[in-house]
């Protein structure tokens, strides 16, 4: 078998990609995936710089190990996750869809977006992480009798 320069470069690239994937798989930063999902889903809103990262940190504090592992693996996709997702082809109970729904839900509920009538033209303020266990009444949709 001829071991050409071209084959050598391809093999090197494949090995590098495999090492990168293995590294991300094991040690990737799950917050990258959270931020990428938010940029794709609600990046068009007028949000304060840095709030996606602040949110991602709090979000991950309250996730199970399973969910963190899922996000770590998603971070493999890197910047591509900002532009694509299999969401639309997944059923409403698929774990990947539920994960994306959960990220977007908790982010929007952590802001004043719904208190302001879901108005996309208004600036969105990150109020505090949405924690239903806090003593505050935070659900913006609940109506009293």
């Amino acid at each position: 078998m001829n071991f050409t320069r071209r084959k050598f470069l391809l093999a090197g690239f494949a090995v590098g990609a495999a090492i990168f994937a293995a590294y991300k798989w094991r040690w990737g930063d799950p917050s990258e995936a959270v931020v990428a999902i938010l940029k794709r889903r609600v990046g068009y809103l007028k949000v304060e710089p840095g709030t996606f990262h602040d949110f991602a940190g709090r979000y991950l504090e309250q996730r199970s190990e399973y969910q963190k592992r899922l996000l770590r693996r998603l971070s493999l996709l890197g910047p591509a996750l900002r532009f694509m997702s299999p969401y639309r082809w997944l059923g409403p109970a698929h774990p990947l869809r539920l994960l994306e729904d959960s990220v977007v839900s908790l982010y929007l509920l952590s802001t004043d977006f719904f208190q302001n009538g879901a108005d996309e033209q208004r600036a969105v303020t990150y109020v505090s992480f949405y924690d239903p266990y806090s003593a505050e009444c935070r659900n913006p949709f609940a109506r009293k009798p």
Partner: peptide, 16 residues
């Protein structure tokens, strides 16, 4: 159930 797990779809947040 009435716990707000939203739909990650612009303008259709509550349609689930």
């Amino acid at each position: 159930w009435n716990v707000p797990l939203l739909r990650a779809a612009r303008g259709r947040w509550r349609q689930r």
